[in-house]
Design a protein around this nucleic acid. Structure first.
Lengths: 209, 209
DNA sequence: CTTCTGTCTGACCATATGGTCAGGAAAAGA
DNA sequence: TCTTTTCCTGACCATATGGTCAGACAGAAG
């Protein structure tokens, strides 16, 4: 008890409150969109006074920017699973696994990302034009190499990437629709089945050996 | 000239203005989300005074409801292309064609739909539980029939439907991201390539003969 | 022409929202 | 202990938003 009430160090306080706010913000932004989200609601979810939010994040847009940025980092990190793979079965298989896991563990983040892109990416346009573009170029080259090596069918690499993103993120972005049709949240077994289905269909779809 | 200025009949006026408002609303809702859209902006896009919007649609939510409902109708109509097909190659091929065409012609509608579902479907939950659920049940039965007839591999029908929705709607919902990576809007040829890629990968992915 | 009904809109209102700020509390440093 | 720095927050403000309404306007009906 006395331990729990121990006064926090300065940097602990800052770190803890920022994390609390970012977590609440991700949830609220995912549920209501940028325009529909209110600082008051984020404050309520975080359990802090609204003015305290503005102490850590000057504006709503700055807070939103940080939320989107965090998601982008997770997203890019998972993308590395595709590298250093001997072929498409391992590389794309691992990528699908990683992306499906993100859809399951960070559905709110995926929704915020989707919302941002759908609304014309007003905040992260520069990321799209630099980091994402570069990453995409590298991956299409990788896929082309696999095709030339006869490890998979000659599919268009760009459209393959789009399909990977679409199929995996769908389980987060449209999770509510899926849960409604399923009559409830997906069980562990159902998540495995989802992952297997996506992997099987896509790997067979690209003729990976 | 005199023809253009001919006074409009009552029902013509109503029909024309409602269409004008719905068109503007779809665009604004797609770009800003429900919360971010303002009646004033919709009015400006429609070229009408704000008060006139409230004459035809009592509340913002009623207008939004009508927009989403319209999209749902288009969506369901295209779904019929799957029926009366001798097998998955024709049925699913036609369905992909139809959905890709909707993504190209009605990207705003698709975005509004996606936004609505992502935010927990507050307006169309009943549609999900009735119409969509029934339609899905019918289509999974159809797919199972094709599997039993040996026309395609034994994939999970639900996850196949999710993949179809995800892959096709991605070109509308994430159109901005695709255009950024592509360095501009997709050309006619690129749209054909997209359609072909999706169709080829999925049909091969489900082992359709 | 007169009446009636549907169309239109500028002006207005209550409320909610993002953001500010002065001043208090508390930890860190000297 | 005293000073400084950081943290915290109730109260406040300017603005924007959804929605209302009285009254003008114009086809339709007789």
């Amino acid at each position: 008890m006395s331990e729990a009430l121990r006064p926090l160090r300065r940097n602990e306080i800052r770190q803890q409150n920022e994390a609390l706010i970012l977590q609440a913000a991700e949830k609220v932004f995912a549920e209501a969109g940028f325009g529909g989200a209110t600082m008051q609601l984020i404050a309520d979810v975080a359990g802090l006074p609204k003015a305290n939010l503005h102490y850590y994040f000057a504006t709503k847009e700055e807070l939103y920017r940080k939320v989107v940025s965090n998601i982008f980092d997770i997203w890019l990190h998972a993308a590395q699973s595709m590298d250093n793979a001997p072929g498409p079965v391992e590389g794309i298989g691992a990528y699908i696994d990683a992306k499906m896991e993100i859809s399951r563990r960070h559905p709110d983040g995926s929704k915020v990302w989707a919302s941002e892109v759908m609304h014309g990416a007003p905040v992260i346009q520069d990321y799209l034009e630099t980091t994402l573009r570069d990453w995409t170029a590298g991956r299409t080259a990788l896929i082309k190499g696999w095709i030339d090596a006869g490890l998979m069918a000659p599919v268009n690499p760009d459209h393959l990437l789009y399909m990977l993103w679409a199929a995996t993120q769908h389980y987060a972005d449209f999770g509510h629709q899926i849960e409604t049709l399923n009559g409830g949240p997906l069980s562990d077994a159902q998540w495995r089945a989802a992952k297997d289905s996506v992997k099987t269909m896509i790997l067979r779809g690209i003729g990976a050996v």
